[in-house]
């Protein structure tokens, strides 16, 4: 990939034997049974699994909303799973850009204010915040929407704002939880394309957790979870091979659907 910036300064994320066991009464429910994984700087990594595979738990641990029962989580060479609450909040703020399935924008704040929220918690001065919010909104193609409320925007636009918000503190990586789950197919593609651009052109590291087996052309690496373990790790060329087949199928279906719609409207 000649157009891709690669910073070789070690792994962004390194998970070593992450285990998580929930205890309900006398019952111990192991959810993660030893996860080893790394995310390199500039990579686009997908964690894929069906519900019950432990991917939500892994997402929470990656996002430092939850701590593992055992194992180590290195974020930019720092072991973060045993930090205090305040330190974790600070790292969450500076290093992780969250993107949610249902966008989780603040409906009563304007687009600009929404983008500013992480910067406020990062204690960045108002003047700099506003400038950066404008930059980011332009980067996701919504520079003209700064004064709007999220309720005045479409789902795709909302997710773009959420992406701008996630990028506002220049995080080490973007952690996206099913980011296209609430969007229609066309918008999903656009959003995925935006992620792809951010990754390829601006070198943003992206970790995406999804149950969607349609792989897309974007991932550098796909880690498939099954029953709390890593089932298989597909590298880029393998992803390409698989997705080729899947995408062909999807596109065929879409064309067929469009033809049908055209027939109906005519």
């Amino acid at each position: 990939m000649p157009d891709k910036e690669v910073h070789q300064s070690g792994d962004i994320v390194r998970l070593i034997d992450i285990r998580k066991t929930y205890i309900t009464g006398d019952l111990q429910v192991p959810v993660l049974k030893g996860i080893h994984a790394t995310v390199k700087r500039g990579e686009f990594v997908g964690f894929i699994g069906t519900s019950g595979s432990g991917k939500s738990t892994l997402l929470n641990i990656l996002g430092m909303l939850d701590v593992p029962t055992a194992g180590q989580y290195f974020l930019e060479e720092t072991e973060v799973s045993q930090l205090t609450d305040v330190e974790q909040a600070t790292i969450r703020n500076r290093k992780i850009g969250f993107i949610f399935q249902s966008f989780n924008l603040f409906p009563h704040l304007s687009v600009e204010e929404n983008i500013e929220v992480p910067m406020i918690y990062g204690r960045i001065a108002g003047r700099i915040r506003r400038k950066r919010a404008l930059d980011l909104a332009q980067r996701v193609g919504l520079g003209h929407r700064l004064g709007h409320r999220p309720t005045q925007l479409s789902g795709g636009e909302c997710q773009r704002i959420a992406i701008a918000r996630a990028l506002s503190n220049n995080p080490a990586f973007i952690l996206a939880d099913e980011p296209t789950g609430n969007l229609d197919e066309k918008t999903s593609d656009e959003i995925m394309k935006l992620f792809h651009e951010l990754n390829r052109e601006q070198g943003v590291t992206i970790v995406m957790v999804t149950h969607n087996p349609a792989l897309g052309p974007h991932y550098d690496k796909i880690i498939r979870l099954r029953d709390g373990r890593i089932d298989e790790t597909l590298l880029e060329w393998e992803v390409k091979k698989q997705e080729h087949a899947v995408f062909k199928e999807i596109e065929e279906q879409r064309d067929k659907a469009e033809v049908e719609i055209n027939e109906v409207t005519q």
């Binding site: 305040v86 969450r92 969250f98």
Partner: peptide, 12 residues
């Protein structure tokens, strides 16, 4: 929850 995920501390 969203605020916490975006880096708000408990004190905030």
């Amino acid at each position: 929850g969203t605020r916490r995920a975006l880096g708000a501390q408990k004190a905030d």
